[in-house]
Design a protein around this nucleic acid. Sequence first.
DNA 1: GTCTATACGGTGATAGAC
DNA 2: GTCTATCACCGTATAGAC
Lengths: 190, 190
Amino acid sequence: MTNVREEIILATCRLLEKQGYPATGLNEIVKESGAPKGSLYYYFPEGKEQIISEAVRYAGQILVERMRTGLIRVDDPLQALYEFINHQADQVEKQHFTAGSPLTIVSVEAAGSSERISQACRAVYDQIEAVLQERLACCGLTEAEAAEQARLTLASLEGGMILSRVHHSAAPLRSVARHLKDSMKKAVEK
Amino acid sequence: MTNVREEIILATCRLLEKQGYPATGLNEIVKESGAPKGSLYYYFPEGKEQIISEAVRYAGQILVERMRTGLIRVDDPLQALYEFINHQADQVEKQHFTAGSPLTIVSVEAAGSSERISQACRAVYDQIEAVLQERLACCGLTEAEAAEQARLTLASLEGGMILSRVHHSAAPLRSVARHLKDSMKKAVEK
DNA sequence: GTCTATACGGTGATAGAC
DNA sequence: GTCTATCACCGTATAGAC
């Protein structure tokens, strides 16, 4: 992958987190990336859908990897998850609450308009659930229980991101972190 | 409020749930509403931001009212919440997973671009939290505990809506409903 | 209140020179 | 690989007749 191509993807990711899919124009991407104007359709001959799809995959890959490594840095899975979400809250706070990977916003926007982009989003979500499930299975849950908990964790996380963004405050995300730790601890102990 | 004005608001709500804020054009609103072309800027002289803001407020009002009445139809607050979320899941299912009030998508999209619309979204979220908090307080929680649970419930709900939309399945939302009932029951009993 | 016409800029996309 | 020019279309918004 050449440098220019990657710059375009990175710039697209940044713009998507802030503005979403329809609001992000190709001209804007060119400007933000600093790429030569003629390069867009050279590297992405299938146009906007291709660029957005690849950006979602790219950002998703990074997020999944960050989760995977983050969740094994601490022995206790629940404590690890707690710290990971709080770390996410720190990041979002630093970036003035416009951040959190393009995933949330793009998946909602593309659900009805682009099957291609939707599919890219779904793939990332599935990976995230898989990572969570694998890590939560270490708590002594059955596979089905771990899968269920993973999905619920993901839902809370997404909701927390939204509320933090809307309220311009990291508090909702931190509430989610605390609550998930406590409630799952009880679920495991029972 | 004249009929035409209301039709415009209603049409805007429908389009917003499907497509979001930047993807919904004024021409599209005119067409969808069946309103006379000349009426848009007559009823909404401040343009697009005004239309969207009012649509968010309108849809939010309906949602809040539906929650309020839904949550008191059953004696047990937790059971009432459970049934309400499942009812939402039914609705979303019927509308091919493009529905769920314009709130989620617009709040995320407008967070960085329109303070006016953002504020309208925040106001609705605050009302929803208030309704939840009031109802959950009946479980014997302190006011602070009820507020915290209300926020967490809202986060799970939002996340569940997103996942259901992305997966074209009501399952995530139903998981959220079940889990909230169970986990809060334990929290109350302890 | 509503209609038509239009201004003006932006959009995604393509063609062809270099 | 990149640039420039250009396409047809869309967007929001406004003006003025009726």
